[in-house]
Amino acid sequence: MNAAVLFDVQQASLGYQQRAILHGLNLRIHAGEKVALLGESGAGKTTLLRHLRTLRPDEVAWCPQHSGLVPMLSVFHNIYMGRLDRHSLLYNLANLLHPLQQPRQDIQRIAADVGLQEYLFTSVEKLSGGQQSRTNLARALYQQRAVFIGDEPVSAVDELQADQLMALICARHDTVVVALHDVELALRHCTRIVGLRAGVIELDQPAAGSSAATLCRLYAAT
């Protein structure tokens, strides 16, 4: 491969809340890859994603699982928050009080992409779980970064939508690293599968040539 190395994790032991979860981890991700992280819950996917985000904080569009939405704010505002870092405090405050023309147009477009155009000025707390999940995803899309890191970004929506949204994520980002629980979805959209099990990388192979059956051992009882 001659693409640039984006993430290079060598012999890392990562933990969460002072507990080591990942041990002696080696992982190198190149620009342009679409990586799916698979594994049971508790395998260390979230920990790994959080770590990757901290390696390149300014280049990553981040879509966490516990969405971090502000329930009493509207869809517009929650999406806008993806770009808080790029505007002055005054501009941000003005948008909080009264959405301005430019961000309004941009966000309207993104909301339409995820099917939320009708709810642009509805408080997030009034939305369903799936709609909230899409708001969360829209915020990451609005960041318009080259790299997308998402923790189960499409888990709360139905299969058809999940498929469309994954396609959208892959189309808008050069590099994608996502934790997924749907093996089929991973095989359809990603180029590389990394399987985690009990804090170690159990498998790491190209998606092409992998089958759902071979990946099932990640979830088998020991």
Binding site: P57, D58, W62, G82, R83, L84, D85, R139, Q143
Partner: peptide, 11 residues
């Protein structure tokens, strides 16, 4: 949670 989800570098 909401604070942690913000893009890095937000004032």
């Amino acid at each position: 949670a909401a604070l942690e989800a913000l893009p890095a570098g937000t004032s």
